[in-house]
């Protein structure tokens, strides 16, 4: 198992957001995490990436406990988050942003190779390679954030609502690229509000409500009963 989460609790001050969340992400799989607003999806991602401390429970990544590790340690172990707010370096160019994503890669040559791979995936970024990140469109920014995360060659990619606010054609394109990455061996945990997209992409879906998982099932099983599924999300 790539990632095992058991009875995870977390919150902000007195506000408890996660109340005993458990989920599994198998190696090579794509798992989608669904849920309405305030269910705790983004909080889950922040805890997993080490941006927010858990108050209880266990997180095992490739067999080792990572709960309590700082974000840079978790990153170094191969788990990288693409945040919903993207968190690009606005004053840096597209190339500089990508290079910052490869801090674990030591040599110039490695960085050049990784950058080329990202440009292969997202040719659009190559066109804007010397533009500042702040000047990119929403879709381009999402591509850059994803590309930057890939620069570290993660074994588990966390994506927090990658399609929010993007044009349908770009959503489609992004879905295609993520599938291609998964076929190349990348394990993905994605938070989505776009149920259609999530069901197309994922092997397994988890539905969250009030900080815990209320159901999970193979995507193929819920494919046909999408109406029932939506009721959980309302």
């Amino acid at each position: 198992m790539m990632l095992e989460v058991r009875d995870l609790t977390a919150g902000y001050g007195h506000l408890r957001v996660l109340r005993g969340l458990s989920l599994d992400v198998p190696e090579g799989g794509v798992v989608a995490l669904l849920g309405g607003n305030g269910a705790g999806k983004t909080t889950t991602m922040h805890v997993l990436a080490g941006l927010l401390a858990a108050s209880g429970g266990h997180i095992r990544f490739r067999g080792e406990s990572i709960r309590g590790l700082t974000s840079n340690r978790i990153f170094a172990r191969g788990m990288t988050l693409v945040a919903q707010s993207r968190q690009l370096f606005p004053e840096m160019t597209v190339r500089e942003n990508l290079e910052m994503g490869a801090l674990v890669a030591r040599t110039r040559r490695e960085i050049a190779k990784l950058t080329d791979e990202v440009f292969d995936l997202f040719p659009r970024l190559l066109e804007r390679v010397d533009n500042r990140a702040a000047s990119l469109s929403g879709g381009e920014q999402q591509m850059l954030a994803t590309g930057r995360a890939l620069m570290s060659r993660p074994s588990l990619l966390l994506l927090d609502e990658p399609t929010t606010g993007l044009a349908p054609i770009i959503v489609h394109e992004l879905g295609r690229i993520l599938r291609r990455l998964n076929e190349g061996g990348l394990t993905i945990l994605v938070v989505e509000q776009n149920v259609q997209m999530a069901l197309k992409l994922a092997d397994t879906v988890y539905v969250m409500r009030n900080g815990a998982v209320v159901m999970h099932a193979p995507a193929s099983e819920v494919q046909d009963s999408a109406e029932m599924f939506r009721s959980y999300l309302s």
Partner: peptide
Amino acid sequence: TIVGAQLVG
């Protein structure tokens, strides 16, 4: 961006 910096390790 501090969070961005954390996200790239």
